[in-house]
Amino acid sequence: HAATELTPEQAAALKPYDRIVITGRFNAIGDAVSAVSRRADEEGAASFYVVDTSEFGNSGNWRVVADVYKA
């Protein structure tokens, strides 16, 4: 099962156990969220919340930071 994305309210009520950072070329924010979901799932997380997204220069590469939560 894939890790689910939390709302800001849900994330605020929970304590993350880790923070992950992924970088890559994403065509849309949805693609980045899917990549975070896969990584969170690999780490055994039940859910995640994207904290920050930023573009690296003009290369089209993105850096996505997310907190991950157990259950």
Rank of each mutant, 00 (worst) to 15 (best):
A2I: 10
T4L: 12
T4V: 14
T4C: 15
E5D: 02
E5T: 05
L6V: 02
L6G: 02
T7Q: 05
T7H: 06
T7I: 04
T7M: 06
P8C: 14
P8E: 12
P8M: 13
P8Y: 14
E9C: 13
Q10T: 05
A11N: 02
A12Q: 10
A12W: 06
L14S: 09
K15P: 05
Y17T: 04
D18R: 14
D18E: 08
D18V: 08
R19H: 03
R19Q: 06
I20S: 00
I20C: 03
I20G: 00
I20K: 00
V21P: 00
V21M: 07
V21T: 09
I22K: 00
R25Y: 13
R25H: 12
R25T: 09
F26N: 01
F26W: 10
F26S: 02
F26D: 00
N27S: 12
A28E: 09
A28K: 12
A28I: 07
I29L: 13
D31Q: 07
D31S: 06
D31W: 09
A32Y: 06
V33F: 10
S34D: 14
A35D: 03
A35R: 04
A35V: 07
A35K: 05
A35S: 05
A35L: 06
V36S: 02
V36M: 13
S37K: 15
S37E: 06
S37Q: 15
A40R: 01
D41V: 15
E42Q: 12
E43P: 01
E43L: 15
E43N: 08
E43W: 13
E43F: 14
G44Q: 05
G44H: 06
A45R: 02
A45F: 14
A46Y: 11
A46Q: 12
S47L: 08
S47W: 15
F48V: 01
Y49S: 04
Y49V: 09
Y49W: 07
Y49F: 14
V51R: 04
D52G: 09
D52C: 14
D52A: 13
E55H: 10
G57W: 08
N58M: 10
N58W: 08
S59E: 14
S59C: 08
G60W: 04
G60V: 04
G60E: 08
W62S: 04
W62A: 03
W62F: 11
R63N: 06
R63M: 13
R63L: 12
V64W: 03
V65W: 04
D67G: 00
V68R: 00
Y69G: 01
Y69D: 01
